[in-house]
Each structure stands twice: as structure tokens, then as C-alpha cells.
Design a protein around this nucleic acid. Structure first.
Lengths: 220, 220
DNA sequence: AAAATTTTTTAAGGTAATTTTAAGAATTAA
DNA sequence: TTAATTCTTAAAATTACCTTAAAAAATTTT
């Protein structure tokens, strides 16, 4: 899952990035409103965290602009203010939720999960066939037998399962899992698909190759 | 262990916080019913202390709401009232226990231990493999041989054992054990993991490292 | 109040695991 | 058959963790 953080304070931004990367998100950080808006327009994020008091264009304005062009991406705003008025104002500008500073990471994570859930109707447990992923405990099971995956393997598997039944193009995979947004002359995806197929002992049963396009995860 | 105190009188709240922190709990305080409800909904607490007479939403209402969404978290209510009716009323609203003001800290602590015990079907003694923690006496044994741990070591071990079988991310550890909620550019977790591994002479048998994520405690 | 002790935190170099690169082999489609 | 694409493997590069020692902070003793 790909997330954009618009936040100028490096302390908070780094805290969020580290924590979210541990939770297997692909994280981008923008330090100004303008930069954040630009990144939101150019990339497809699964969720956006937006500080209300960033330099450059105000958070509210960034939110309005994003919402004008993208009706679905969930936006959570971070605010030091907490008067009812400010919150209403923020929600009216198109935000889906808000969280007050100082931030409690688990609270934020709970709110993020709520947004992703309502949008996608899923639980903290994803599965295909006999493969089960628990996003909270970071565990993967194949026929109830635990499989230890590295961070990148986990992240790739999550992306494929979340999109099961749909083709995942190489470009989308490299963007959502590796967070690379330019021409990537790399075979890293092939290698990781190989890792997953091997570790999960699934041959080509789950991850099917679509030549010239990418991969697709199928139940059967 | 993470605890939420919903209490408006600063004197009592501080008294409780200090005492519970000495017992190695990570403590959050909410001064109003609304705030308390919100925090309870967004965070995972191991136990909640709820004053019956807080400003904002009443304690009873807070309790009902929390219980509606979370069937397991133990709730102990603090009350100046002590008629049978009030107590019944409170327990019917979903509380697990009550304690009368003025508070005796030892009594409160005992009731907290009872709740944590009954909730998890365990004694005041936690264990993994041959390692045993006695929460009341603050002692740790490895194969019946006592191991002396410092406060932080004890607290970290407790968190890991209570979450055994689940991955504890670095961010979660730093929040639950150190109560730090911002970017922590620190290697203090690594060092304490090392301390525990050394003192408990367990090599990597119990505490497994999950690179890029955190640690997990396993029985075998 | 100062000194001694213990606990906690910081910092830095070494080490091991993960991630990426790269190149030849195998497969597929035209 | 040829050209393009993917698979497979191994090695290089990078990153995160481990380990150690010492500094800083907190606590206890003198």
C-alpha cells in the first residue's frame, strides 16, 4: 500500500515513515504543500496524511485541490488545532478523518486501517487459497504453516493479494511496492516473484505471469 | 502493559500515573469522558480505569460505548458512590470491577492484576519456555534460577511475552515500553534486546529478529 | 551535598541478512 | 528461427542489526 505524508517537521515525518514502513507501506514524504499537491497529482496513493500547517500552499487548499481531481483517495489530516470549527472546516474541505498532534502511532494506524477497510471492505487478514496474511502480526501462513518473509517479499505479496483477480502491471508493482516512479531498468520484480513462488511453494498456481504486462494472483 | 486512565482530578490522575509507571505500565490519561472514549477506540489498551464522574459524556456512557466495540478490554470503574444500586448499574454497563474512592493504591493494583489474569486465563505469572515472570514480586526466573532485571528490561520482556507469537514492531515497542510517540533515532531497543538475551541466556531461541520490522517471542 | 553505584541512552564499527544487479538460460510469440 | 520477455542463479551492494564501550541520567549511599 502506498502512502503520501505531507509534513514539514522532519521529526514527525521520519517517525511516521519508519513506523509505516514497518507496517509494510511504501511511503513518500513531501515537505511543503506545493510539493505534496504535485506528488498527489502525479501518483496514485492509497492514502494521504496531510499536515494542516505546512509551508507553501495551506493544508486545506492542498486537500481541496486533491479532492477536486480525485474523489476517492482517503485523506487524513494532522492537526495541532482541535477546536470543533477547525475540524469541521477540514472535513468540509474533503478530508475523511483527522488526528490531533501529538500523534500516537497506533491511533494513527487504527485510523488508516479504518479508511482502507471501508474503502476496500477487507479485514486485517488477507488470503488467497490456503495462503493467509495477518497484517497486524506480520505473519504469513501456507496451510497453517508459518512462512517467514522478508519485508519486500511481504509487501509484494500484500499488493498481489489485495489485487487478486486483477492484473498487476510491472509499472504498478514497482510503484506501489518499491516506490520507484521513473523508468526502472531492473529485474528486481522477477527475482522477488521467484522468491515468493519458492517460499510459498506454489509453483505457478497462484501467481500467473502475463507476458508483456505483469502478474496476476488467482485463487485456483 | 498499556493502561488508560479517564479521570479529571489532576491530583488523583497523577497519583495513579506515577504509581502505575513504577509498576512498569505505560500510562495515558484522559481528562474528560469524550477524550477517554476516543482514546479507547483508537488505541489498544490492556486495561482501562474509568472515573464515574468525569466531565463530558458520563462514565457509564463511556463504558457502554467502549464495550459495544471491544468485548474484552477490562474496565475498572472508580467511584465515590457505593450503594449497591450504583455498583450494579456500573457492572451492567459492561465494567469488570469497581473500586471505591478514596483509593488505596495497593488495592487498585491487586484488582488490576486480577483483571489481567482472568482476561488471559493466566496467573500473575507469565511464561515462555523455561522463563517465568512474576508480576507481583517483580521476579524473573530461568529454569527456576532467579534473574535480576532492571525496570526497562522487565517492561520490555513483559511486553514481548504478553505478545508472544505476534510480531512486535519497533514502533510498537517504543510506544508501549518507552512511551515515545515521535521519531526516535535511537538504538535503545537493540541494546535492551541484547541485555535480555544475555541475562536470560537464551541466544536467539526465544526472541527472534524480524528484519525491518521488529522482534517476535516464540516458545520453541 | 557529594560520591558512588546503577540504570539508561548514545554512538560507532563490525557483521550478517536483505535487496539489487547482472548475465546467461529458458520460454513464448510472431 | 528470431526477437522479446521472463526465469534462474550468483555475486555485489546496501541496509539493518548486533555488539561494545562509554557518556549521561537517575538513584542510592556516604
Amino acid at each position: 500500500m502506498r502512502i503520501l505524508i505531507v509534513e514539514d517537521e522532519p521529526g514527525i515525518a521520519n517517525f511516521l515513515r519508519d513506523g509505516l514502513e514497518e507496517e509494510a507501506f511504501a511511503v513518500d514524504v513531501a515537505g511543503t504543500g506545493n510539493k505534496g499537491l504535485e506528488m498527489a497529482q502525479l501518483n496514485e496513493y492509497d492514502i494521504i496524511l496531510l499536515d494542516w500547517m505546512v509551508p507553501g500552499i495551506s493544508g486545506i487548499e492542498v486537500c481541496r485541490q486533491i479532492r477536486k481531481e480525485n474523489a476517492v483517495v482517503p485523506i487524513i489530516f494532522l492537526t495541532a488545532k482541535d477546536t470543533v470549527n477547525d475540524i469541521v472546516f477540514g472535513l468540509e474541505a474533503g478530508a475523511n478523518d483527522y488526528i490531533k498532534k501529538p500523534l500516537q502511532f497506533e491511533e494513527l494506524l487504527a485510523r488508516i486501517r479504518v479508511q482502507l477497510r471501508t474503502r476496500e471492505g477487507e479485514h486485517a487478514i488477507l488470503n488467497v487459497g490456503n495462503i493467509e496474511m495477518n497484517l497486524e502480526t506480520h505473519q504469513v501462513f501456507n496451510n497453517s504453516k508459518e512462512i517467514v518473509l522478508t519485508q519486500k517479499e511481504f509487501s509484494l505479496l500484500e499488493y498481489l493479494i489485495r489485487n487478486k483477480g486483477k492484473v498487476c502491471t510491472r509499472t504498478r508493482i514497482i510503484e506501489h511496492v518499491w516506490d520507484i516512479h521513473f523508468d526502472a531498468d531492473t529485474s528486481v520484480i522477477d527475482v522477488y516473484i521467484k522468491f515468493l513462488r519458492k517460499k510459498l511453494d506454489m509453483g505457478n498456481d497462484y501467481i500467473h505471469t502475463i507476458r508483456g504486462v505483469g502478474y496476476i494472483m488467482r485463487e485456483d
